[in-house]
């Protein structure tokens, strides 16, 4: 891919020098859902037809791993739509190009990296939520939980499912939010209790909600967007936003340090924080970086934006390794079935 890309670039350059018109290509790494990508590129090209986007898409974990592995020989020009926790990791590795996109001051500061110039800019947030299958829960006589603490009730034993934070970003944002809401000690204590009620930990973050939607489990801890989708598909589920507040992570954009196409990359990042772009994000995400843009999304809990905790991403990124290790030794080790 690199070679053909380089070849294309050189030949494009040769043609460009001759004709004076420079068509550029950008290799963009992303974890955005596949079905949205075509739309993103189309919208961007409407304004910038001269820059072509070559997507490399995969799950958050894989893309993060890929970027880390390519640290010394980066293949990507831009990262567009990857978890902020991952971008913080890249930032601490010195992999990102600092750049203040045009109009960055218009964004909600929560969504912008605090360095000056910022190294990444947020796009939208995905927010934890509980998916509650009314049919199955009804059959089992399970009360509707309203808070995280409610889930500790022994009545839920074996009826809860959540993602494994070791393999799922959603799982990790749940864990890191509990540690922030309840404090470190309180957070672990809470998870100890929760662990007793958990049927199993899934690999993927969307699985708990999908499993709740299909009735495989009555209650799944997942993220709100997934719940809204399942509900729209006709699943008998309710999306519950716990009263203590919910963890969240954002999808963010950054330029990869050392890119050959810095100018084009900056153009893309500039565009990615425009109002139009944020309106585009809003079709899937209820909370976006540009204040005042967000329109309610169907089946999305309305109060979600207010319930988002004041997430300390640096805390999450810098303690990720330690948190995961602790989690693994507490729950993964003794989670063998009896």
């Amino acid at each position: 891919m690199t070679n053909s890309k380089k070849w294309l670039l050189t030949s494009a350059l040769a043609v460009g020098l001759a004709s004076g018109a420079l068509a550029e290509e950008l290799t963009v790494y992303t974890a955005v859902e596949a079905e949205d990508l075509a739309r993103y590129a189309e919208m961007f090209n409407a304004d910038h037809p001269d820059i072509q986007i070559n997507w490399v898409r995969d799950s958050t974990g894989v893309i993060t791993a890929k970027l880390l592995a390519e640290k010394d020989n980066p293949q990507a020009d831009v990262i567009w739509g990857l978890a902020a926790t991952s971008l913080l990791l890249f930032k601490s590795e010195g992999m990102l190009e600092p750049y203040a996109p045009e109009g960055v001051e218009l964004l909600d500061p929560k969504f912008v990296d605090q360095s000056d110039p910022p190294q990444w800019v947020g796009m939208d947030a995905w927010v934890a939520a509980i998916c509650y299958n009314t049919v199955e829960a009804g059959a089992l006589d399970l009360p509707v939980p309203t808070s995280w603490q409610d889930l500790l009730d022994p009545v839920y034993e074996g009826h809860l499912i959540m993602p494994n934070p070791n393999s799922s970003g959603t799982g990790f944002l749940d864990v890191s939010s509990w540690l922030q809401i309840f404090g470190e000690e309180g957070g672990w204590e809470y998870m100890d209790g929760l662990h007793n009620n958990i049927a199993r930990y899934t690999h993927s973050g969307s699985a708990p909600c999908k499993l709740a939607a299909s009735g495989e489990i009555p209650i799944g801890i997942s993220f709100a967007f997934r719940g809204a989708k399942s509900k729209a598909a006709g699943a008998p589920i309710e999306i519950i936003v716990p009263t203590e507040g919910v963890g969240w992570d954002m999808e963010a954009t950054a330029i990869v340090a050392g890119t050959d196409s810095l100018e084009a990359a900056q153009t893309l990042v500039d565009w990615s924080i425009t109002r139009a772009a944020n309106e585009m994000y809003n079709t899937g995400y209820a909370v976006v970086a540009y204040p005042g843009v967000a329109q309610p999304v169907e089946h999305f809990p309305e109060n979600l934006a207010e319930m988002m905790i004041d997430n300390d991403f640096e805390f999450a990124a810098n303690n990720r390794s330690a948190i995961l290790e602790e989690w693994q030794s507490r729950y993964d080790g003794k989670s063998d079935p009896k």
Binding site: A65, N166, L324
Partner: peptide, 8 residues
Amino acid sequence: YKQVIGQQ
């Protein structure tokens, strides 16, 4: 798989 894909 978990080590590589989940935790890099």
